[in-house]
């Protein structure tokens, strides 16, 4: 087990490093650089001024030198300086990351609850039309643009009914509504996977045996169906980290909330390379940590996984 954990952590670090490197290469595609854009707010800056400032922030170095000095900076806890916001990257992100974390994690929990409700009612309800309706909810959730739903809710709840503020004022509604909007969207893939795997479990003979023994439908569902269906849903939950971030960017913009959304847009618009890199580091780390946790819980649900190494397909089959 210890070796397994060590290997997974090694892989996680590798993924973070590769993600960081990939984005370092991607930002080189941007047509300008943070210094030129920073200095050109009022008038096109002179080449000398630009050169001087580039030298000060190291943007005049060869790419490889920039890359390694950034990378080594990370180990000293130096994440670079965001020119666009006039503060160190760590401060810029640190000031708002909590807001996004609260939004994203609440939305995730809500989404899982939504998904469970959908799956439980789809499995247990006997009325056919209602069941069909419920089964079709996740595709509907997935098809409604998040920004549109958010804007309509604000229009109705805040402007027409006056029950919530247009601004994040800390009230329950100003937190709950954005969480709801994001959760609706995130819940769709989780619910769909859960529905499918529950169906698969229900198609197996042991469920019939249980029924024949006289077990109640809800007992079968919660005691056996859900337990067996949970593992696949957990995998997809790990993957929703990226989805949550993209959704947060849009939800935060709609609800004028502080958070990573504002930072993402600012970093790209100002071509603030250091800020982009900081964001990638953060999201890649979040992704691997969540998936690491999922991977470590996984064997507890299904001990067979441990034997086959990394989760995924049975290894024996790969030639």
């Amino acid at each position: 087990m210890a070796a397994y954990i060590a290997r997974r952590i090694g892989q996680a670090l590798l993924v973070i490093w590769l993600a960081y490197t990939l984005v370092f290469l991607a930002v080189q595609l941007l047509p300008n650089d943070p210094v030129t854009i920073f200095l050109s707010a009022d008038a096109a800056a002179s080449p000398e001024t630009i050169a001087a400032m580039k030298a000060q922030y190291g943007y005049d170095q060869p790419l490889l030198v920039q890359y390694f000095s950034q990378l080594t900076g990370l180990f000293r806890g130096d994440f670079g300086y965001s020119l666009a916001s006039g503060q160190p990257v760590a401060d810029r992100i640190g000031a708002v990351v909590g807001s996004t974390l609260i939004l994203a994690s609440s939305a995730f929990v809500t989404a899982v609850v939504f998904a469970l409700i959908v799956v439980a009612s789809a499995t247990l309800i006997r009325i056919t039309w209602l069941k069909r309706l419920i089964i079709n909810l996740p595709p509907l959730f997935a098809a409604v643009p998040v920004f549109w739903l958010g804007l309509v809710l604000l229009q109705v709840l805040s402007i027409q009914l006056g029950v919530m503020s247009l601004f994040p004022d800390g009230s329950f509604a100003s937190v709950a509504v954005p969480v709801f909007v994001l959760a609706i969207h995130v819940s769709a893939p989780i619910a769909q996977v859960l529905l499918k795997s529950t169906e698969t479990v229900y198609a197996q003979p042991f469920i019939d045996v249980l029924r024949a023994k006289g077990a109640s439908p809800s007992w079968i569902f919660f005691r056996h169906g859900l337990k067996n269906a949970a593992a696949p849903a957990m995998t997809i939950s790990g993957i929703t980290v990226g989805t949550l971030l993209a959704g947060s960017v849009i939800t935060e913009t709609v609800f004028a909330r502080a958070g990573l959304g504002q930072v993402v847009l600012q970093s790209v618009t100002a071509q603030d390379v250091a800020l982009v890199q900081g964001l990638v580091l953060l999201t890649a780390t979040a992704f691997v940590v969540v998936n690491l946790v999922v991977d470590l819980i996984y064997p507890l649900l299904d001990p067979r996984i441990l034997k086959s190494g990394t989760h995924g397909a049975p290894r024996a089959l790969a030639a």
Binding site: P139, A142, V144, P145, V146, F147, W148, H185, V186, A188, P189, Q192, V193, K196, S197, E199, T200, P232, I236, I239, T240, G242, T243, A246, G247, I250
Partner: peptide, 12 residues
């Protein structure tokens, strides 16, 4: 909306 649903709708 720009959310990517990775592996949508598919049990496989």
């Amino acid at each position: 909306m720009s959310i990517k649903i990775d592996e949508p709708l598919l049990e496989s």
